[in-house]
Design a binder for these strands. Structure first.
Lengths: 328, 328
DNA sequence: CGAATTCATGAAATCGTTTTCATAAACCGA
DNA sequence: TCGGTTTATGAAAACGATTTCATGAATTCG
């Protein structure tokens, strides 16, 4: 591989001048510029990016943390982030935390070792106090999941509203015994907010919340099936359930149909995300503008990197929308 | 941020010795090792990876090309690759070619500029002749999609068998008017092979292939719906269709049910991939060991990087399996 | 005991860029 | 014409590690 030195020699100029041409600096004569360009082409030269990174102290690479890329919500988020990053000339390193604290901390080292210029977190496993020290090494932006203590830019959705409009819709449809499935609302702010919205809608309607209609650890299709079998065995059953994801809703719907139940007559179900799955399974759901938050988060990230300014907590909150189908 | 120099000074030793400790080289006294470790801890030191990359001429980073990460087949592939890479201490850069030749070529520059040690391609947009020159810059491994000219390691599935067992299953179920949906078999070896398998099974059974039952550009749920409406309007209709993905199959099934058709009585449908979707929609499908090929491809890649040996064309072909459900 | 290894350390070269600094020519206004 | 800017170039110093080479001390061996 040719180096800048080889180009300089072939062009009969110094490394400095070649570097100037590469970086489009002023004060280089048109004639020499031609010489350099010609030499670069002739040698098939491209600058070595490790050297550039070392010297420029920037990598033009951003790490994105997701629990698992196979979760459609996160893959869509990553898709939009990659698009936004590529547009601005940044690379994306994919980090799957696998819902593990340790894995998340392990990847944080990328920032310390200067392998990336910044971090976008879409989920948070550790306490913010564990993550905070890494802010000294580069900017962090939160997208989707967030934490109140974190003094960094946050792009997220109005999950309280999400929980509220979903539950309210069920109430308006005439359901009164409304169950609730969610992930862990103690560690996840997203889950906690939705729960607040749910409780608010229930309270407004004067409905009571039955503890036995609260189903937790709900993430996957399998969890949905498991939850259905719990419902099936309950004496006092809900007539509708609010779920935290289309997968969970789909799992419940599938198991219910297999058991001979009619949806929504025997059980109304509402999903979350409006994934392609929701349309196929005819699920009422809450649509989140995923592409939008992904793009906004990435743009914010790049802005942070380029401004090198101090990070302020700056919250951007986007609204959600109900999509009605035949499951409610 | 502390540098190796700072550590050396604090420990009262030379950079060389510190470097030896970092890289676990022999010939460093236990006592000094302790000193260095202590100094590193005290300064919260980690080696700057740009500097390491430059000096070691290796990035420990691998680029993975996929058309779109939101396609569940590819997100599962990426998930398994990321797992395998992380296990061996490698990072993954995600490149979405978006089915565009230009985008693919653009990302190839990552290899030339030494931003990554190697490339795993899961789809190929350009002619191999366009890609070949980049082999001089580092190893390339093909996973899933492949090309006959490419003299590189290939990990792929036996798509001929896939087309064959799917079609044969339909024939065994008593269907004779078998339609076929696929992507572009001219540019994709995967699609071409499946077609070969389909034709083989049809020929063996003495069935004729109707050109009007060949539906192309089939990739998404939407395409499936479009194809169903074509079928619906045909005078001479197929009684079963083989599809190249669960999404297409799901789209056809959904549209068919909406039109009041019964599956499989009015139309049998077979999918491909065995995604979660297939189970939810009760689709017979062909299961591909995606995690396996992802892991194998990544391991092969790392082997290539570490051996620095010449690349030989070495094909690994894995078998597929039919999963029967109620759509056939 | 002397020669040959092995062990332990550091100075300096190296990886391939960019940036700073120095220098000189060209231009410009009074 | 003279000082002062603007333009154009290159030598050398970063950036932060690893690797080569040299050197001496400690150990082993015949």
């Amino acid at each position: 591989m040719a180096t800048i030195q080889d180009v300089a020699k072939l062009a009969g100029l110094s490394r400095t001048t070649v570097s100037r041409v590469i970086n489009d600096h002023p004060y280089v004569a048109e004639e020499k510029k031609q010489l350099v360009t010609k030499a670069m082409k002739e040698l098939n030269y491209v600058p070595n990016s490790s050297a550039q990174r070392l010297r420029k102290q920037a990598t033009e690479t951003i790490a994105v943390y997701v629990p698992r890329i196979t979760n459609p919500f996160f893959s869509q988020l990553v898709e939009s982030m990659e698009n936004a990053a590529a547009q601005k000339g940044y690379q994306l390193i994919l980090c799957q935390t696998r819902y593990k604290k340790k894995q998340e901390l392990f990847y944080l080292e990328l920032l310390r070792t200067k392998q990336v210029d910044g971090l976008v977190l879409t989920s948070i496993e550790n306490n913010w106090s564990e993550i905070k020290p890494y802010l000294a090494c580069g900017p962090i932006v939160l997208c989707n999941e967030y934490s109140d203590e974190a003094e960094v830019p946050v792009i997220h959705l109005d999950q309280i509203q999400g929980g509220y409009i979903g539950t309210k819709h069920l109430i308006e449809q005439g359901y009164t015994k409304i169950g609730y499935c969610s992930g862990n609302h103690k560690s996840s702010r997203v889950a906690a907010d939705r729960r607040i919205g749910y409780l608010k809608a229930m309270e407004e309607a004067g409905l009571t919340v039955q503890p036995e209609w609260y189903y937790d650890s709900a993430y996957s299709v399998e969890d949905g099936k498991r939850i259905f079998s719990i419902i099936q065995n309950q004496k006092n059953r809900p007539d509708a359930v609010f779920t935290g994801s289309d997968e969970v809703a789909a799992g419940i719907a599938k198991a219910a149909k297999q058991a001979g139940w009619s949806i929504p007559e025997d059980l109304a179900i509402i999903g979350f995300d409006n994934q392609p799955l929701a349309e196929l399974m005819d699920l009422t759901t809450i649509e989140q503008p995923i592409d939008m938050i992904g793009r906004l988060a990435m743009e914010k990230m790049i802005e942070e990197i380029q401004s090198k300014g101090m990070q302020k907590r700056k919250r951007t909150e986007l609204p959600l929308k109900l999509v009605q189908r035949s499951s409610t």
